[in-house]
Each structure stands twice: as C-alpha cells, then as structure tokens.
Simulated scan of single mutants.
Amino acid sequence: MQNSWRVHLALLAVALIYAANYSLAKDVMPRYAGPFGLIVLRVLPAALIFGLLARLSGGARIEGRADHIRSILCGISGIGLNQLLFFGGLNLTTPINASLTQTVSPIVVLLASALLLGERITRVRASGIAVAGLGAALLISGRGSGGAPLPPTATLGNVLVLLNAVFFGIYLVLVTPLMRKYPPLTVLARIFLVGAVVVLPFGWQQVQLIDYAHLPTGIWVAIVYMVIPLTIFTYLLNNWALKYAAPALLGVYIYLQPVLAALIAVGTGKDAFTWGRALQASLIFLGVWLVSQKPRPAVPLEPVQD
C-alpha cells in the first residue's frame, strides 16, 4: 500500500491526541463545564469550520437518497450519540476505565461489518468476542480492580463509554463508503452539521451556565485542545485514513489509547493503575487480538488418487 506509513503515522497521532483528552477533560468537567455543555463547545465550532472548509475547497456534494440517509446516520452515531455518551460517561468514571472500555470498539466494527458487509465471524473471532466481553464486564462492574475504591458513579460511566464505543464502531463501518466516494471535507461538513443538531438540545442549557469570564487559562487551553486537535485534526486524519485502510485498522489503533491514557493519567495524578486493571486490560486486549485475526481462505479438497 503506497500510503501505508502515512496511514500508520496518522493513526498514531490520533491515538496520542485522544489519549491526552481523557485527563484534560477531567480537568474541565464538572467543575468548569457540564459534559453536554462541553460537547456543544466542541461540536458547534467544528461544524462551522468543516462547513467553511468544504465550501472553500469546492468539493462535491453528497448525492442520492441512500448516501443522504447514510450521512445522517453517520452524524447521529459518529458525532451526536458518540460525543454525548463519551463525555457523559467520562464525567462519571476514571480516565483509565474509560480508555480501557473503549477498546471493545474493534469488536463492534467486526459485528457491524458482519451485519452490514457480510464479513464472516470465525470460531477464533467468536472466542475473542467472549474473552474481551469478560474483561469488559469485569471492568464495567468494578470487580477485581484493586487499589483505591472507584467512584459510585463509575459503573454507569463505564456503561455509557461502552455504548459510545458501540456507536463509534458502527460509525466506522457506515462512513467508509462515503469517504471512498466523496472528499473528506464534504463528508465531515455533513456529519458534523447533523451531530450539532443532535447535541444542541442536550447541551444548550449547560453551555450557558459556564462562567466564561473567570475560566483559568489552563481550562481555556484544554477547551481549545478539544475543538482543534481533538475534533478537527482527529476526524480529518481518521477519515483520510479510511480512504486507504479498512475500518478494522482504525479499531486496532484504539489498543494504544489506554496505554497512552494510563501513562498520562498516572503521570499527572489523575488516576492509578492496578494489577486488577492490568488483568482486565489483558483479557480485553487478548479478545480484541483474536477478533483481529483474519479468517484463512478455504482450501479445496484434493480428489483421492487411486
């Protein structure tokens, strides 16, 4: 693949940007902004920027009823529900728990690919789904984590982040045909417009409650980070990569996020990594690795020679 190294470099950059967000967002929520208000501050400017860039680039418009419906579904799953569930969940749980829970996304990509694209699920992949499911269940329930007790809201937060991973996995499968047919800015402008319509009713009240005049400089920096690198850069890089790579590869790079997020969270004192979490992470990683194994092509039987 001609763009192989560029794709991997882009996805590595995305993993780093996402990993830092787990700790940065905890600095902002809930003291300075509610999770849904933060989403509005993130999605509305991004929708305006992508819309302006799409117009300036003179890109093609989305055409046909099927593509219009697909783009709306991408906006709902990949922007609206994805953001509401992620920030709502992260506000209730810890950075490491949230990042580990998101690693089930490749499994969702596989299941969505099987349902929407007809991809075959082998026994190895089925066993991977079971193993990763066990690790995710232990993580979400908070059992066996060890170390300091989790906040009482952690279970609900983990469930919301899990649902976020589900919708993100569905989005990756849904958006791939659009990214290979239209310019990335055309697709991003549409899905962020739809996403803004979805999140605005949920976050409008919270965004008005923010005391903008007294926000510390560090919080402003974190908010700008969520709008520019976390939203603009990551979606541009992810959707560019989808032109040259399968959705499963983007899912695989989610493995890096909890490792990087844990290093950042522990290094900044936002969270602690325990042996219990290491076991849960190992189960999830093993399961996702099994899921990522491609099925071998069937070998035709040779006729018996007499």
Rank of each mutant, 00 (worst) to 15 (best):
R70K: 14
F50N: 01
L53R: 06
A47L: 03
L53G: 06
T94G: 02
H68W: 15
A46T: 03
G78R: 00
S127I: 14
L84H: 05
S113M: 03
I17A: 06
L117M: 08
R120H: 09
G78V: 04
V40S: 09
L48M: 11
Y32I: 09
V28P: 02
R42P: 04
P35M: 05
R70V: 12
S23C: 08
P35S: 10
S127G: 11
L111S: 00
I72T: 13
A47K: 09
G59Q: 08
P35R: 05
V28G: 08
L53W: 12
L52M: 14
A148M: 12
I49K: 11
A130V: 15
L115A: 09
L138V: 04
G64W: 07
G75E: 04
I76K: 05
N82Y: 11
R120Q: 12
T93H: 00
G37C: 11
L38Y: 11
L110M: 09
L134H: 02
S77E: 02
A112L: 04
Q102R: 11
V28S: 03
L150R: 09
S113V: 03
G51T: 11
A148G: 08
I62S: 10
A137S: 07
E63D: 14
L56W: 15
L110T: 02
S99C: 13
I96T: 02
F87A: 03
I79D: 08
G89R: 01
R31Y: 09
A60Q: 14
A114N: 08
N82P: 12
G133K: 03
A98S: 13
G118S: 04
S71L: 13
